[in-house]
Design a binder for these strands. Sequence first.
DNA 1: GTCTATAGGCTGATAGAC
DNA 2: GTCTATCAGCCTATAGAC
Lengths: 221, 221
Amino acid sequence: MITRAHDARTAILDSAERLFASRGFAATTIKQIAAESSQNSALIYYYYDSKASLYRHVLERVINEIRSEAAKRLTDDSDPESVITAVVESQVAVLNNRPSLQVLLARELIDWKAAHAEPAIRSLSATLFERLRLAIAAGQGTGAFRADLDPTFAAISVIAQVGYLVLARPVAGILLGRGTDGPAPDDIRRFGKHAAAFALSGLRGPVATDLQTSFRAEGGS
Amino acid sequence: MITRAHDARTAILDSAERLFASRGFAATTIKQIAAESSQNSALIYYYYDSKASLYRHVLERVINEIRSEAAKRLTDDSDPESVITAVVESQVAVLNNRPSLQVLLARELIDWKAAHAEPAIRSLSATLFERLRLAIAAGQGTGAFRADLDPTFAAISVIAQVGYLVLARPVAGILLGRGTDGPAPDDIRRFGKHAAAFALSGLRGPVATDLQTSFRAEGGS
DNA sequence: GTCTATAGGCTGATAGAC
DNA sequence: GTCTATCAGCCTATAGAC
């Protein structure tokens, strides 16, 4: 289960991930995966039932990595503002460290309407997203955040910012003057800081209430 | 140039747009397009040089529709806040009226890194996006918006919200309790209203004042 | 302009030697 | 486990009748 066999299996999975991410499922051939991983194309069918099965295994691994990366950054005792910052920072980290993860997920969304990833997305939704939503609702409860926003909509607005940078990478690159290769890693880091500040500012609302007179200068300190 | 010929040509274009949008370029075959449009598959090669050429024509038409739809909603004398609202509403309108337009653009981004759409995106960037960015900068100049945000980043945050709903449609659907088919048209309308409000709130900042000095009362909850 | 027929190439997948 | 050889089917694209 380990050593040579493990290596070949993993090499196939790695190459498949790269190619599925960069070209898409339909445009990637088994022979391309074999060549990229320096393995025999028939060996792919020894380890995986079909191209579709290989894709499902690739996707499963990607989803687990995204889940664990995100979970790692969320401690249980965070205040609402920290939760929001942590979520955005986690998006930036995944995006900068393993770009193909989110690209592959993006393709899954658009190519299969998330048919393979639906259980995983529901799971992430029930844990991570729900945590973000509850943090926003909690902030509204204490008066820290304006109460007239729908917490679910607001949570989507939080994740949408960096999410858009992933999904519309070439557009973001052009808008930032970097061309269609997309934003540079440092652009993404800086945009992440902006996104967190923008979201917090949007949540706090236009006027600090009498009960909640604390705010901090973002970007200045 | 009109009547029968025009009809066949347009029918091919229509079906190609639908199929390229829903399945992607590589997964769509010429015969599928022929069947969907009730035309002979060889006729497609009479009107278009190749599958790739047909795709480019489809994309060109889509881009022109997006551009004209967006331009229609932007008058020249709008104040900063109206510009932001108009941009978001224009996104919602396109998304609800012609969903395949933005899906096709999304696929172009991810499948070809916007290689075919780059000139159009640059053009849109130089007009529409620049207009949004300048509106934000103008608002900052009058003190209506907080000055510590990068106008380009802020403009991306504005368009990212509805943009994410398009690109991550199945995710948004799950998060909103609608399943992988994505948000309902009414969800999108309501989210559009939220997105404009959220963006304006984020831009206005925690205090409505022309002075950007702020109190330091950390952890004041 | 619209059709039938088909070429030529590549794809996913399998059989079977080692 | 890893390899070679190969098949059946589908794909884009073209030739040529009408």
